[in-house]
Design a protein around this nucleic acid. Sequence first.
RNA 1: GGGGCGUUAGCUCAGUGGUAGAGCAUUCGGCUUUUAACCGACUGGUCGAAGGUUCAAAUCCUUCACGCCCCA
Length: 499
Amino acid sequence: MTDKPQDESKLIAERRRKLDALRVDGNAYPNDFRRNATADELLTTFADHTDETLRAENVQVAVVGRMMAKRVMGKASFIKLQDRSGQIQVRLERDHLAEGVYAAFKKWDVGDIVGASGALFRTQTGELTVLADEVRLLTKSLRPLPEKFHGLADQETRYRQRYVDLIVNEESRKVFRTRSAIIAYIRAFLDAQDYLEVETPMMQVTKGGAVARPFTTHHNALDMSLFLRIAPELNLKRLVVGGFERVYEINRNFRNEGVSTQHNPEFTMLELYRAYADYEDLIEMLEALLHGMAESILGTTVVRYQGEEFNFGERFARMTVEEVVRKYNPDLDPARIRDRGYLAGICKKLGVAVRDNDGAGKLQIEIFDKTGEHELRQPTFITQYPTEVSPLSRRNDADPFVTDRFEFFIGGREIANGFSELNDPEDQAERFREQVAIAAAGDDEAMAFDHDYIRALEYGLPPTAGIGVGIDRLVMLLTDSPSIRDVLLFPHMRPEVFD
RNA sequence: GGGGCGUUAGCUCAGUGGUAGAGCAUUCGGCUUUUAACCGACUGGUCGAAGGUUCAAAUCCUUCACGCCCCA
């Protein structure tokens, strides 16, 4: 954007002239007007007061906000001021204001920030209104707002200029209030169970805790490369070693992958660890959390999302990975469901690439992702993930091919991932060595060997279970948002070109 | 990475080869109970960018940029 007024639209140039006039008259950006109530406080407090009682009570109020409507009828006007709580109407009468104020007001624009004080009354249609005996322009807005009826519809502008979206689109404000309420609900839920909220580094020397490509950055003074974390997992488990038996972190992870309606390069995860618990305890906990959250946030256990209805009022379904694979591949021979060569043949039929070092477990997951994941519409816990694809999970005691792990799906999307933690340092070291081998074979998503983490496990990680919950996807679900960008205040965008 | 759709006034959108339009906003005038206020007049555009076809391009073609959706 340019600073040269001659390049600006006439609308902006017009407002800039008005600002120049304000500067001549005095302080164009005053900060000495104070309100004594928000719009919603007034609407709530005086909801039952008639015009007669209001006039008898002579309730003096001072309100502020952005002028979202301006209706001038000769010597009197109505305006709507929008503050953080909502909108309140103000009536201005020329003869009820100081000399010249009304004439000045007529030059103000929709979008300007205004303060007004006076007594409350009710209009003929019953709307609570402030009859102004003082009104002041607090901040001049130089840019016109989008058209009042349709609002701002252009997706690109809504994401790039979120401030405009928030000014004019109440639905957008609501999404972000709901987001905040969801996170507050989670904190209250966990705090009540004596979990400790912690913060662990975003910048890490060793990448680990998940299978994903990292962003790299560089520390100049130390002249070293650092990874932006793909997960906080290993640090949180170090804290459990340290004796914080219940910890959680709600924070950003960074993954250097594609951008889509469900992926943003940085996204928010709840990650939680609980000692002396197993993955089934966390399934129960997540279920209770989500049931209560839907009731608290939505006021119902029926979650409507993009034309589907998800039932949050009953026990969620459970299936194993192999059950899903069999259900959605009815021709698959169950006796050979762990036969690497057999599964490779099925993958080829499905058009899934098979790598030489992919084992049966990895191929099961490929088939699961391709044929089953999208079908998991109603909330479902999927358990018993192959050990091969679960390098941090505890092996199942009865069946070491799988781990005590689950993922949770709603609407065909992964919402959460949890497991009983692998706390055997020798098994963990072996899993890290396998990851290193996979990385050496060319998989840039594989984990590195984290020597300090092994050392921490050698001090003793108590039997522990952990879970990660994708907050953005949860918010999408509870706000009926089709794209992750709708629930991120500033979603990642390619740079805008300013010329 | 592939495919589809889109980009026209500040905003929301029309305009499929022949003089760039509407509503809202802006500006001016009127109006002391409006609710997308209303009435009247006016103003506002390198039609995303570059190139090409054509007597003539917002419109057809090519490339690029950005966005949205689907697929990998």
